[in-house]
């Protein structure tokens, strides 16, 4: 027999005295949310799915013509779109790897008794509290070959961080790493402080080396929470728009989000860009699913 999970309304409560039943209270909370979701999420989602099979352009009065899978075929056959995808994949890889290495490293350093730990942690968290566009603008100044402070300190002369097609993507990834490593650090710190101290004591008694302890105790116990950080960062990195848009207009830094924006709001190819957005959506869902499967496996261990 199915059990009813709902909490029963106290017959003496104010709500009950006004005559609101359990059902109406539930509806009161749920219906606005569902309505909001349907109007602003599900309806546009389905509507744009419809558009993705047409040659509709929002900038003209011409009626949309059904073209079947033509948009999807054109997009998947366009070498420039594939270039956008491979650039994005490279960017996600560099940026997320960098954030995990730096963020986890910082967490390891902070996970010990050091003076002014709270202050240091707070200062380290500052970058991720800034707006992406602002970060992009001031890093553009920092990278400037004529007066930028980075070349000055590193003694790189007139090195062109953003103008060099091969370097530009790395330069953007470095900014992303600077900005979001603290996020990985914060989650890792939470994971690290939850590792029971007696495990380390036992390892010490067994004379286990530092490396052995790290790979056998620390990493496996922190892995689930680290995976969550990686899922978040991968999804965000995949969608990156503002940072790359502000910093550089190199073709080698044209991420899919930028291409999609141009297609939808500069070229007004509404039908084509809807199809493009669906391709991106399917990819993000697929990648996230792989991660979630892996996360469940890690948790099960």
């Amino acid at each position: 027999m199915p059990t009813n999970n709902m909490t029963r309304l106290d017959p003496n409560s104010q709500a009950a005295s006004r005559g609101l039943s359990d059902l109406s209270i539930r509806n009161l909370f749920i219906i606005p949310t569902i309505a909001f979701l349907i109007i602003f999420n599900i309806f546009p989602l389905l509507y744009s799915l419809g558009y993705s099979f047409t040659d509709f352009r929002a900038s003209t009065n011409a009626p949309a013509k059904f073209v079947g899978l033509q948009n999807y075929r054109d997009l998947l056959n366009d070498p420039f779109i594939w270039k956008n995808f491979s650039i994005t994949a490279k960017y996600v890889l560099i940026s997320v790897t960098g954030q995990v290495v730096v963020g986890f490293g910082l967490a390891m350093l902070l996970n010990r008794a050091i003076p002014a730990k709270g202050l240091i942690t707070t200062l380290l968290l500052l970058p991720m509290m800034l707006s992406m566009a602002v970060v992009g603008l001031f890093w553009k100044l920092l990278y400037d070959p004529n007066f930028g402070i980075i070349n000055y300190f590193l003694g790189l002369g007139k090195f062109e961080w953003l103008a060099d097609p091969d370097m530009a993507l790395w330069a953007i990834a470095i900014v992303d790493i600077w900005m979001w490593s603290p996020f990985v650090m914060l989650l890792s710190l939470a994971g690290l402080s939850a590792v029971p101290k007696h495990l380390y004591e036992a390892a010490e008694i067994d004379r286990a080396g530092n490396i052995y302890t790290f790979f056998r105790i620390t990493l496996p116990l922190v892995a689930p929470i680290l995976m969550i950080a990686i899922i978040f960062r991968t999804m965000e990195a995949f969608k990156t728009f503002d940072l790359a848009y502000v910093l550089s207009s190199q073709p080698t830094t044209e991420l899919i989000a930028i291409r999609l924006y141009k297609m939808a709001f500069q070229e007004w190819q509404t039908g084509m860009s809807s199809a493009f957005a669906y391709i991106v959506l399917i990819m993000v869902v697929a990648i996230t699913n792989i991660y979630v499967k892996y996360l469940n496996k890690v948790k099960a261990r």
């Binding site: 352009r57 900038s59 003209t60 420039f80 103008a163 097609p165 190199q250 073709p251 080698t252 141009k262 500069q266 070229e267 007004w268 190819q269």
Partner: peptide, 21 residues
């Protein structure tokens, strides 16, 4: 033409890698 923005995109995609890259 109404599709001028698409023509600009192609021009940017082709010209930029030659001139700068």
């Amino acid at each position: 033409v109404p599709e001028f923005a698409e023509l600009l995109t192609s021009a940017n995609q082709r010209l930029y890698p030659f001139i700068v890259g």
